[in-house]
Design a protein around this nucleic acid. Structure first.
Length: 299
RNA sequence: GCCGAGGUAGCCAAGGUGGUCACGGCACGGGUCUGAAAAACCUGGGAUGUCGGUUCGACUCCGACCCUCGGCA
């Protein structure tokens, strides 16, 4: 198994295609945004343009299949609708299915994507198994930070020992903790999981300098704008999708929606889009560099 | 040239009867990370146009100069 991760805009997919040819491989998308249908230009699904989607199987509302580009299969694009929930847990499930299918054919699975959060869970699993409880989340979202902290302490007085000061002030993380400890019967342990030994190559791509990163991202945003990024967003809104949908909580879409609503100018939207991408690339690296298994390549 | 308004960090921007050298936001640096992750958070550093005057003390008052914006010519 090969894994390619790293900063956005470093050419992960290109490297994936190259290695796929070299090792008789098939690519599995590990990008949380490309999982969504209809998010094409802004998430950079250039390769699938005009390509046919081959449906392999449908599980619940997940549509699992692949595109073929340059005779290489790319799996896990377009799995769900932009307004549907997805998570690292589902990713792990789907990736397992596809990895096994690829192995069955004596081919090499190549996971490609910058969502390290997904890869981490895919490789190391979860300690416990608690589904999202949306009605609970909705209720908790109305509470203030202090109320959430109190609520969590009520359920688990020792929680301060297992949560850092950053997460302690993060409503979303607190809600998740409450959700986990609130479950009747407590947490259910998940079976241990460690796929690290199955990795033949774990490659991380990063920019050799900040300047290069900025330049590349600026070019990419300009290109995507020329390819019709704004039209893509207009079409999504026309179809009834909303800025709060899971899939649209994405860099590029948020800024263009603000422009279309008249909150900012077109130029401001593009500028902010670039800035957010640069910040994102930085956060990716901060997260990934803690993983000692990744072998870094500068571009 | 005249009249008016104004010059506070890279950008936007608050303030006060002169007194712990100044609120925020964005950007920038660093970080968090077990089911929303291209998400959601935590944290750090940086400023009073220039020159002079008044005063124990000025970003705040006075003067000159420079610059910006609006109006008149």
């Amino acid at each position: 198994m090969i894994i390619i991760t790293g900063q956005t805009a470093t050419g992960k997919t290109d490297l994936g295609l190259k290695l796929a040819k070299e090792y008789n491989g098939e690519i599995i998308n590990a990008d949380s945004r490309q999982i969504y249908q209809k998010l094409n230009i802004i998430t950079g699904k250039e390769l699938k343009k005009n390509q046919k989607f081959f449906l392999w199987k449908t599980i619940n509302h997940f549509q699992i299949g692949f595109y073929i580009f340059d005779s290489i299969k790319i799996w896990l694009y377009d799995v769900i609708q932009p307004n549907q929930y997805f998570s690292s847990y589902y990713f792990t499930q789907l990736a397992d299915l596809v990895v096994n299918e690829i192995k069955k054919q004596n081919k090499t699975p190549i996971l490609v994507g910058g969502t390290y959060f997904y890869l981490k869970h895919f490789l190391c699993g979860f300690d416990y198994r608690v589904n999202p409880n949306w009605s609970l989340r909705k209720k908790l979202e109305k509470l203030t930070l202090g109320q959430l902290q109190k609520e969590l302490l009520k359920i688990n007085p020792n929680v301060r020992n297992e949560i850092n000061s950053s997460d302690w002030q993060n409503p979303r993380r607190l809600i998740r903790k409450i959700e986990v400890f609130n479950k009747k019967g407590g947490k259910i342990n998940s079976p241990p999981r460690n796929l690290k030994n199955e990795i033949d190559q774990f490659i991380g791509l990063k920019f050799s300098s900040k300047e290069k990163l900025i330049k590349t991202i600026k070019n990419r945003v300009r290109k995507r704008t020329e390819q019709g990024a704004i039209e893509e967003v207009k079409d999504l809104l026309k179809l009834g999708y909303h800025e709060n949908n899971f899939g649209l909580k994405t860099i590029g879409y948020q800024q263009i929606i603000a422009y279309l609503k008249g909150k900012i100018s077109r130029e401001e939207a593009i500028e902010q889009w670039v800035t957010k991408e640069i910040q994102y690339a930085k956060r990716q690296l901060t997260f990934m560099k803690k993983d000692p298994h990744i072998k870094w390549k500068e571009i």
